[in-house]
Write a protein that binds this DNA or RNA. Structure first.
Lengths: 243, 243
DNA sequence: ATAATAGTGTCTTTCAGACATTATCTA
DNA sequence: TAGATAATGTCTGAAAGACACTATTAT
């Protein structure tokens, strides 16, 4: 039947059959970063099914029309399956699509970047055999499934920018952390040392952190512990740090 | 049949039937901006079909698995239908999706922001009766189809940021333009006057434009004409202008 | 000459870079 | 006390804000 403009909307909707149209495969994937053992790591999953069986891939999957109301619901559900928890930072990266990125045909994947403290999901990940934290630099050398290498690179590039004008990387740390720790996360992300004074000054001036105590380490002067203010993840400095 | 891990990939792909899975509706839309008569305008199309028949909507549509190799191909094809030309600036904005944004069911739309000179498509748009340039502030007050209001707001917010740290808004002007014109485009986008000296100084220091002649206007001193360098659309100033 | 617009000079302010110095802990 | 790490002091430099000033056109 033709979907003529002569019907009213109710009739149109009753007659409408989505599956009559050939649509690309649609998935949602995430690049979940954490900071552990001095390295920036990304969560990868070993594919158990075709296509690309056996290769490492980003966590993600198909939208569930029953369980998910939004795209974020989908990625939260998928990340929870792998990590047991919902990451404190989730932001859409971009959508990758094309005729050749998946052997099954035209495909589209809506990608998210997420950050989480390593300790927050350590125990759960140990129980999931096909999932592991891989250092980003190592992941970039693996033979990853689909175009997931390109997606990880894209997520990393964006995270570098965020490290230069925000303190978003703090979400890769536990709820309380020291300034030297946070600075090191930034340095690992951008791959370059930063001026301690510049780093601390701008955070103090923007009043982004709350002091919550003191940390005792094995050697040297103890560092103060801080936690983020509720809105400090959205703060953007007007001037970038040098790359 | 079950898609078992026991098959090899060739067998798997031969047996795979995309349409066996219920998938969300997938479209690609664009927020195409231009600068005309001192205003920032956005291209809207009057919907001729259900759902949301008769309402203004963003240009866009379904992916064609035959005609399109990439998502950009899709949006370029759709914009060419409406404007007759390919905009010089196209960048992915973000993807909007959810169970309720379209009455036909779960839907996802990959959105792009694009910029074009008004004169570049003026003649073609006059021949397309259902398409028109609407001032952004006016569009925000219309009863737009789907969640297109939210999409336009999101695109505008992103464009404000770009106006503060780049000269991307220049793509909303003809190939050659004057600095006062470019400054006014920025001011219209961010909704606030800018310091003439600051605006010009940073463009000159970064050497982003090439002088191509002189423009004679009806009154006052004539302004120099400039065109963009090939890569100046990607340049980011380290420091933002004040909002 | 006047009005209008384009473009420059220059002082102030802000904030990051550089790096020396001081503070506080353990062994 | 020495060694290590945290935290601060302070000078320099780069770039934006503010705004007065000069330049070039039409009438």
């Amino acid at each position: 039947m033709t979907l003529s403009g002569k019907m009213n909307e109710k009739q149109f909707l009753a007659a409408y059959d989505k599956s009559a149209f050939d649509a690309p495969l649609l998935t949602v994937d995430a690049v979940l970063f954490t900071y552990h053992e001095g390295l920036l790591k990304v969560l990868l999953v070993e594919r158990s099914n075709h296509p690309e069986q056996g290769k490492w891939a980003l966590p993600g999957g198909f939208i569930s029309e029953e369980e998910d109301k939004t795209l974020e619901d989908t990625i939260i559900r998928k990340l929870k399956e792998k990590t047991g928890v919902v990451p404190p930072y989730i932001e859409q990266l971009r959508t990758f699509g094309g005729a050749t990125r998946d052997k099954r045909g035209w495909s589209v994947t809506v990608c998210y970047t997420a950050l989480i403290a390593h300790q927050a999901c350590e125990s759960h990940i140990d129980t999931v055999s096909d999932t592991d934290w891989i250092p980003v630099e190592k992941a970039k050398k693996l033979n990853l499934a689909f175009d997931h290498l390109k997606i990880i690179q894209s997520a990393h590039e964006r995270l570098v920018q965020k490290a230069l004008y925000s303190i978003v990387p703090a979400y890769a740390l536990p709820e309380s952390f020291t300034l030297p720790e946070l600075q090191h996360v930034h340095e690992v992300i951008i791959g370059k040392p930063l001026q301690k004074k510049s780093f601390r000054r701008r955070i103090e001036q923007a009043d982004l952190l709350i002091e919550v105590g003191e940390k005792r380490t094995e050697k040297g002067r103890p560092a103060s512990l801080y936690k983020m203010r509720s809105d400090s993840g959205t703060h953007k400095f007007v001037r970038n740090l040098e790359l």
